[in-house]
Structures are given as C-alpha cells and as structure tokens.
Nucleic acid binder design. Structure first.
Lengths: 143, 143
DNA sequence: CCGACTAGATTAACATGCTAACTTAGAATG
DNA sequence: CATTCTAAGTTAGCATGTTAATCTAGTCGG
C-alpha cells in the first residue's frame, strides 16, 4: 500500500504552500484570497452562495472572505438589483489586475513543475477528475 | 487548461471530508487526530519534532494536537529518558485500537473508491509521488 | 562552576475551514 | 395588510494551520 491518500494530502499541501509563497512574495496576497478573486472573475457577477458552491467551501467562509477582500479594495459587493437578500460580487480594477498577473505566473510555474516531474499532464488530470466524480457519486448514494 | 491544481485541491478536500465523516460517525474522532495517532504508531516512539516532520506540519501544530490527544487519553507523552527537552510520544491502548480499526475501515473504503473510479491505482500513486519529488527538488533549489 | 549555545517544545496572535443558530429581504397567502 | 415561507447572508464558537517569539533542558568551553 503506497498510501495514495496521504501522498495526495502532502502534494496539495505543498502546492498550496508554494503558491502562497509566490503570491505573498509578488503580490502580498494569500493563495485562498487570490483563488476567491479568480473564481469571482470566472463567474462574472456571482452571489456568495454561488461562489461557495464553486469553491467547495461553506457560505460562512465565503462571507468572511469577501468581507476582507472588500475591505482591501479588491472586490465590490452590492445589493443585487434583482432583489432578494443577495449580494452581487464583482472584481474591482486592482482585483482584476491581480487575477490576471497571478494566474499567468502560477500557471507558468505549475506547468514547468509538471514538465520537470515527467508526469503526463493530461493523463493525471483525467484520473484526478475520475476520482472526484467517483467520490461525488458515492456521496449522492449515501445521501 | 483543465486546471489540475484546482482539481487536486477539490479532490483532497473531499477525501478529507469523507474520511472525517466516516471517523466521526464510527469513532467520534477527526481525521487529523486519527492521522496523528496513526503516524505516531508508525514511528514507534517519536518526538514531536519528528512527528511534525513526518506529517508535513509545523511544530506548534503538533504541540497543540498532542495536547488534546493526551487529554483524551489516546496518547501518552513523557519526558524522554534520553534527556534533553524532548517528549516521547506513545499510543495508549485506546489509541492503538482506534488506529487499527480506523485504518482498516478507511483503507477498505478508499480502495473501493479507486476501483469504482476506474483509475489505475499504481499509476496514479506513482505520478503523485513524482510530483511531490519535483516540488521538493524545486524548493531545495530555491533555498 | 557559570554563562552561552543548541535542540526541542510552547505561547501568542492570526488565517481559514466548519456547523448551528440567527437575521434579513422579498414573495406568497389568507 | 399581516403572517408566514424561502433564499441568502451573517454571527458565534470551535478546529487546525501558520509565523515569530519565548521558554526549557542539557551540553560545552573557559
């Protein structure tokens, strides 16, 4: 037993730390904050609930996270004109720049890492998705 | 770009949550506490520093974690007879049982998950290790 | 024998995850 | 119109991760 689940943990923990160091060094922002902004950018205008769903994180987490991002001026949150108790999230210009530059930097580094490792990217990526799908299917079944 | 690094995150986060649910349900213990005990078991008698190194976690984390595990009677920590400011960690009988039973349960479930997913275990495990190695090599180089 | 060094552990303060419980803004219904 | 339902968000309190600073137990050189 090569303890795959432990190694997966180790791998993502290290990827996190690596991304965190890079982002802190270059842009003085944490990986989780960066990722939040990146996903808001991808969603266009998002509610916090949608953001939580997409990030796979609880709504209170998103609530606190968006709070600090609004405070730092990277993100805007306004009452949704569509009504209801919703907040519409949108990147502010500094947030857009951050996402653009950070994404490029991280993708470049990550691509180089995978190349150096000799792991076949597409293969590994496909298997990762398969595992996620199997896990999701199981959860549904349990529920 | 299939966003492998994001998917890896998603996968481990879900694996965590799944393991956490199982362990809480069966043994009323969190995954991180269980994992700490498991590794103490593997190390035999370990210092906290060795445990932190093995788990890939900071020493203060281990200090707090061992504190609660000692409080719950799963773990014993005594001054190392070898001298120095060391604490020798050892599983208590309830901790040993927990590790034994929890490991079996989790391994069985995880193996079934991988089978269901259709992912070739050895292949994926090897690639995971390759990525970790590449990441470690890079860190050394940067340092 | 005493002051300084080393290794290991702890404390303080913070970031971010979670669940449970509560609040808020509109919508729906009598 | 007032009551009540629903969806979305927030608050409170905890678990666990981090770094920086401090404490502690032996060791070693003068």
């Amino acid at each position: 037993m090569s303890d795959l689940s432990f190694d997966l943990h180790a791998l993502t923990a290290r990827l996190d730390r690596s991304a965190d160091r890079i982002l802190h060094g270059e842009f003085d922002v944490s990986y989780r904050r960066f990722l939040t902004l990146l996903i808001v950018g991808e969603l266009g205008t998002a509610t916090q609930r949608a953001l939580a769903e997409k990030m796979g994180v609880s709504e209170p987490s998103v609530s606190r996270m968006t709070g600090v991002l609004v405070d730092t001026g990277l993100l805007a949150a306004q009452a949704d004109p569509g009504g209801g108790n919703r907040r519409r999230l949108r990147l502010q210009p500094p947030g857009e720049h951050l996402v653009e530059q950070g994404r490029e930097l991280l993708e470049r580094r990550f691509t180089r890492l995978v190349e150096r490792s000799g792991v076949p990217y597409d293969d590994y990526a496909r298997n990762t998705k398969l595992l996620i799908a199997a896990l999701d299917a199981k959860e549904q079944q349990v529920t």
